[in-house]
Design a protein around this nucleic acid. Structure first.
Lengths: 413, 413
DNA sequence: GTTATTTTTTTTGGACCCCGAAAAAAAGTT
DNA sequence: AACTTTTTTTCGGGGTCCAAAAAAAATAAC
């Protein structure tokens, strides 16, 4: 049964959409906030006056550029107070850590790429490394740790969002690397961790909600295979936070050897090492660790295919077929409105396309095959950060609006 | 962006949970409604007085059995007014149509099983048959068609909930059988259609919300293979309403022939005809239409296995392995907290169990395999109706509370 | 230079919803 | 008949939204 509703819910929700509108649209006049949120002007005044008192937003004291308007009382623009809170967003990939400091307006104040040693990183050794890196980063940015209210982390591999740890990832040698608890203890900030492709999915919804809403899925072929699920307008990550592990869904029993140790995972047919292994005509049980592929190897392979190499083209075609089968299973289970393919391998999509549709047609009955759109999207590394920022900002808003002390309002008249 | 919130939302939601509490708990005093819903006594009085005015609930004029209480003002029980509205719930399976008339309190007022000819039922011929059957059923029950505000239909096979039609089903010879539009036009009632296993899933959540909530999935091996998904506390049916088609997710490229015409669907290894085909050592490409199996054939096969027949036992063991692979893919994509196996074939689960775990272990890396519970649940045909009733009642509540004319309240004092 | 017009913002007053506290109601107990 | 207990209702208050009116702040017109 749903919980009872009370006034606080209305309060939170309406204040939240005002903040969202400001974050999405930049400095905005009250009258326009009313149009965007569909709240009445009276309500907008009341809410923004509250938010001004709380210093979550500020009035823009623009000097001149308000000219474009003919006559009438000039609009006073409101904008988010960037200094109301800060977020640190971190992306963890093999040997590399990308840190960004983001203010309350969603602007990236500073960012840093730094290296760490994935090969030795495990549950004991990594958290201190991460904490030290963040501590240094915050200090260099010139703000105090107390101003950081939220830390968001995205990692490749199997991330257990609920438990706040990385179960297994190419970015670490060990398993079950705790992240949320150590960071929370070190900084006192609210903290969460998510799979990197989930954040891409969130970023797509944020960037173009018209196109990317409802039920859609993102599949990323890059270093490894990633997936994100947006279901009924919410990011879905499963009961323990490990959903959307497309790469380790089995394709063929006892099939090609996967980096995870199992045989026949989709990743063992679709990822960088799988494509290189296939194009090099190495046996399917060749240990992925022995294949030096990565994004560089993948790009080299794409160039070879572009140049006309038959083995390379055949490898992509076969991977396309496997991808078609994988997509067919996703469609059967999830029935998404849209499937977005992305990642470095998509530069070779022309060599895969025919295979994808062959696989789809072989694997899936027609009645289920005609209700979706397939997009191929150029890869942009920034998406992960965009998604992290979107997620963090939403959590910040909730922090501010959630447990709020009742402030006296409108006492001067 | 979320929509703005207003008072009507609170109003609807709180009235809705009061109605739900009454439906779940039967006749209840106001004081207990307050405890159940966590609304204050004052609010309960206000809301119930509204609902009494609307004749959605009535005061129980109990004659004596209110004794158990020591002293103090006696409680006056409130209950849903059964006559406030009626729902017709219909289950369509091969050659059989089960109709139930359900009152606003969720009580089944009358029910009827009737036959129709699945072999000739198509998009043109079936809707009139269905309408006539419902019309007769309502007339026999002695209520007027205007009192029926909601019609809910559950069907086997591929159901497109959004379009309101059955895309393909063993219960029909044709494809794309429209249901919602014809029924809405004939009766003026709100109408919806869903897959039968979705309704089982809904029924589990209704019957035991403690156990069946959050993210879980139901897989039914019976006549065909069915699946239902409950994700983040909501029934999930995908963008067009055809999600959870576990049976037609591919297991092995170019594998066993499925009733849908494709090769290698899970159904072609797990359903009645697949098990009979496997135990009879018929080739995998034997046309399912030539195998007379059904629930009867399946039960006969279970008896044979019980009696010690090796071929039958081996068939179940192999199906168990395939099921394990199928579950592994579901876990990789969905990450459910609980998987419920049900259907007639579960009577033979002892012969499948070892295979299931073998398949799971072969198909799925350990990090993803340890966060779920596997239940085997005895099959109960009534679950489909229970789910339909639960769904219909929720929709009725929304009908009443959603587009409500503002009624004057408490004018006499 | 004053008045009109236009547009945005704020204030006012009303409706509604929930709640706590007090009152009323309806019994049993002494 | 007065007291106690329990449930239900009423009353008053706070909070939220909104429509309408008022105020504010600019340009346009004369």
């Amino acid at each position: 049964m749903t919980r009872k509703a009370d006034r606080d819910q209305i309060r939170r929700q309406n204040r939240s959409i005002v903040l969202q509108a400001l974050r999405r649209n930049g400095p905005t006049a009250r009258i326009d906030l009313g149009k965007i949120t569909r709240l009445s002007p009276a309500t907008v005044t009341a809410i923004t006056s509250d938010l001004l008192d709380q210093k979550l937003i500020i009035s823009v004291e623009s000097d001149e550029p308000k000219s474009h308007q003919a006559r009438g009382r000039p609009r006073t623009l409101l904008r988010l107070n960037p200094e109301a809170a800060y977020t640190v967003c971190i992306r963890l990939s093999v040997n590399t850590m990308d840190l960004s400091l983001v203010d309350f307006a969603g602007t990236i104040a500073s960012s840093l790429r730094t290296q760490y040693d994935s090969a030795t990183a495990d549950a004991d050794s990594f958290p201190p490394v991460l904490i030290a890196a963040i501590r240094q980063f915050i200090a260099d940015a010139g703000i105090s740790e107390a101003q950081v209210q939220e830390i968001g982390v995205a990692a490749q591999g199997v991330v257990e969002t609920e438990a706040g740890l990385v179960a297994w990832s190419p970015a670490f040698s060990g398993r079950k690397i705790p992240v949320v608890t150590p960071l929370h203890q070190a900084f006192g900030a609210d903290c969460y961790i998510s799979n990197d492709t989930n954040m891409i999915t969130e970023a797509l919804h944020w960037s173009d909600p018209e196109r990317y809403s409802g039920t859609f899925t993102v599949i990323m072929l890059d270093y490894g295979v990633g997936m994100g699920l947006y279901l009924d307008n919410h990011l879905f990550s499963g009961a323990s936070g490990t959903a959307a592990e497309f790469g380790h869904a089995n394709h063929i029993p006892d099939g090609a050897l996967c980096r995870c140790g199992k045989k026949g995972c989709l990743e063992a047919y679709l990822s960088d090492y799988a494509l290189v292994r296939s194009a090099s005509q190495l046996p399917e049980d060749t240990d992925p660790a022995e294949i030096k592929a990565g994004v560089e190897g993948l790009e080299k392979l794409i160039e070879t295919a572009d140049a006309g190499d038959e083995n390379a083209r055949k490898a992509f075609h076969q991977a396309g077929r496997v991808l078609g089968y994988g997509l067919a299973r996703v469609i059967a289970l999830i029935d998404p409105k849209r499937i977005v393919l992305t990642g470095a391998a998509m530069r070779a999509y022309t060599f895969m396309e025919k295979g994808v549709w062959e696989g789809l047609k072989d694997a899936l009955v027609e009645d289920l095959r005609n209700n979706f759109t397939l997009d191929v999207m150029p890869w942009n590394e920034d998406f992960i950060r965009t998604g992290l920022v979107a997620q963090s900002m939403e959590r910040l808003d909730m922090d501010f609006l959630g447990a709020q002390v009742k402030a006296p309002r409108r006492e001067a008249s």
